[in-house]
Design a protein around this nucleic acid. Structure first.
Lengths: 222, 222
DNA sequence: TAGCACAACTCCTCAGACAAGTAGAGAAGC
DNA sequence: GCTTCTCTACTTGTCTGAGGAGTTGTGCTA
């Protein structure tokens, strides 16, 4: 009857669970029965059901919390962010960057560790050195901005920054090429000012300087 | 070093493996060392390394073939925002919301059209009415916030807001349920204040009020 | 009534054993 | 020389039993 059943039990169990979740047996955010209940229910061992749960956790359908249980976090399937960015106006992207970096800058002023500070200063120094090559300069600038976002210790903001980087990198290179000049002393001074504000834990000043800097960037766009 | 280790070993192992894969230690399509090699290498038991592999298999990074081994099928999973959000601390999500909504609020004050204004006021009225049901109240509140973001006329910010909505909706419902009360007059007044600031094109005030409002929200989280 | 200790429940990790599948080396046959 | 078969070492798959660790609700105490 079952001519070939190459599929491992754990995979089958994962499929079976996903089917029951899709079927509405357990709603979003609700708790599944325990491993010790589920395993005999599906006729498999405990480690097998655990691997099935891990698989679905990897897909983002379930999360496990030690001591509490296993919970449903999604019924399925994400969507496409790359397209949105590609279509979007570069000005809109910069505005989003402003939103993120200004807030990150303020948070960095509150949360930065000595290690963060060292990393930021190293990045600033690197940016100072890379003033000849155009692309290298943009990348060094991006790295400095990223080090600030990292100091905010918020993974969401970091991820957002990284999402926007490729799109704004291209725009900045084009802009600097048009301008015919890059790596001015004024720019470098602005960055130093932001770092100083973060170092002295002045969130308001850090935010204001970051906003000013990015608004100036936006103003130079086509 | 790592003082906190709330993260289960299996998750850490998965992360470590992913890091090494990203680092190019094993190329696409290549075979990883066996479980019995990997486990002592990372200092964990075999079942733990198996769960880590299952997790990455669920994310589409690895595939296993009984008798043959474990193979790399992708160097990086596609940037899946839903997953990032699901894993993230709710406080981090609210901080990202602050970044986006504060900026959107300021932009809305500059760009809102009469039609935007009407939509926002309608949403505020709707929120005022939906004070009985808990979930309806949260949804009406979200709709009001969204109408403000829409008035900023920036598709990226709108998309970001929508991305964060499901995750924060769940958290807000839980929070209000715990608090046992919702839809206070104070909250309603705050929203009216933000709308007034936007109506009178006061970007600074709109931003400040929005920040204040969301910070209060963040403070009430578990 | 408010605070606290505790017990029951949950997931987490390990170790050991055996089953099932794969791939390569080497023997056997043509 | 080439194909085919078999055997073997190695790999993942599965189960079980034992503790460890975190969470949650209950009931007792003050």
């Amino acid at each position: 009857m079952t001519q070939l059943r190459r599929e491992p039990l754990a995979e089958q169990a994962a499929e079976a669970l996903l089917e029951r979740i899709r079927g509405g047996e357990w709603a979003l955010g609700q708790k599944l029965p325990g491993e010790t209940t589920l395993a005999p229910q599906l006729g498999v061992g405990r480690s097998t059901i655990r691997e099935a749960i891990r698989h679905l956790a990897g897909r983002g359908v379930l999360v496990t919390r030690q001591g509490a249980g296993v919970f449903v976090t999604a019924l399925d399937e994400p969507e496409d962010w790359d397209q949105v960015l590609r279509r979007a106006d570069i000005a809109a992207v910069i505005e989003a960057r402003i939103a993120i970096e200004v807030e990150a800058s303020a948070l960095a002023a509150e949360r930065r560790t000595p290690a963060d500070l060292r990393a930021m200063r190293r990045a600033a120094q690197e940016r100072e050195l890379k003033r000849s090559g155009l692309e290298e300069h943009v990348d060094a600038d991006t790295a400095l901005h990223r080090s600030i976002v990292l100091a905010a210790h918020n993974p969401i903001l970091t991820e957002l920054f990284d999402t926007f980087t490729p799109r704004s990198r291209q725009a900045m290179i084009e802009m600097l090429r048009r301008r015919g000049e890059h790596g001015s002393d004024a720019d470098q001074l602005t960055h130093v000012g932001i770092l100083e504000a973060i170092a002295s834990r002045d969130a308001v000043l850090a935010a204001a300087l970051t906003r000013e800097h990015l608004l100036a960037l936006k103003a130079e766009l086509p």
